[in-house]
């Protein structure tokens, strides 16, 4: 190695290079992270809107069925219960998600609409997180003998211990469940800027008498 190379090695490693003073770098990174998360949630919502819109257009193009339909059952969510709630830790950028299982009950012929307008509350007070499923979110009708799986991103939680989860339907009915004490909760992150809950998925599952379930 030549003298110049030795000088260069010493200089790039230890040399006197002016370092810019950026006292708010950590805050800038945190802010950029928040904006990135918000853009990702908005992107998912936009994709859901596109998929839902394509479904509507497809239904219209098919022209529908001209056969008179029997009167639709009255929408009611009175018998729907929040059967389980858990947190999926997730991998990579997906982050933790809240997975809710809503049971449609066993009797009657009421159909419970779940989708746009359905509200989810996590906890109460100043730490509470709330979201209402937006127009364009997939809609399902939960009937007796079915379960519905609802998954939401849940990136931050600054409250004490596992909170209570409440689902309020567009019919006005509501159901609540306390998260188990051993639930692995998301990190608090920045208490002044909690991450919003974001819709991930919603689908129904047929519950068979033997206890098995099939995707619907």
């Amino acid at each position: 190695m030549s003298d110049l190379e030795k000088q260069l090695r010493a200089f790039v490693r230890e040399g006197d290079i002016p370092v810019p003073h950026v006292p708010d770098l950590a805050a800038r990174v945190a802010g950029a992270q928040r904006r990135h998360r918000q853009r990702r949630v908005a992107g998912v919502a936009a994709a859901v809107c596109v998929v839902a819109g394509a479904g509507v257009v497809g239904t219209m193009l098919r022209g529908g069925d001209s056969t008179p339909q029997p009167a639709a059952p009255t929408p009611s969510c009175a018998g729907v219960t929040l059967r389980s709630a858990g947190v999926s830790t997730g991998l990579g950028e997906a982050g933790p998600t809240l997975v809710l299982t809503l049971g449609g009950g066993t009797g009657g012929d009421a159909r419970c609409p779940i989708g746009p307008g359905t509200r989810i509350d996590i906890g109460a007070g100043v730490e509470a997180l709330t979201t209402t499923l937006a127009p364009g979110t997939p809609r399902v009708r939960l009937h007796p003998g079915q379960d519905a799986l609802l998954e939401l991103t849940w990136a931050t939680w600054c409250g004490d211990g596992p909170p209570r989860v409440r689902v309020t339907f567009s019919t006005g009915d509501a159901t609540t469940l306390d998260l188990p004490a051993d639930t692995a909760l998301p990190d608090c992150g920045d208490p002044s800027a909690p991450a919003p809950l974001g819709f991930v998925a919603l689908r129904t599952i047929d519950v068979h008498p033997g206890g098995t379930a099939g995707s619907g």
């Binding site: 370092v19 950590a26 990174v29 990190d187 992150g189």
Partner: peptide, 22 residues
């Protein structure tokens, strides 16, 4: 921001800023 990551940013920022200057 994750607390570990915040510590990482605080510990490494001067080194990375200097490297950025290079």
């Amino acid at each position: 921001m994750d607390a570990d990551f915040a510590d990482f940013v605080a510990a490494k920022q001067n080194g990375l800023l200097r490297y950025g200057m290079l």
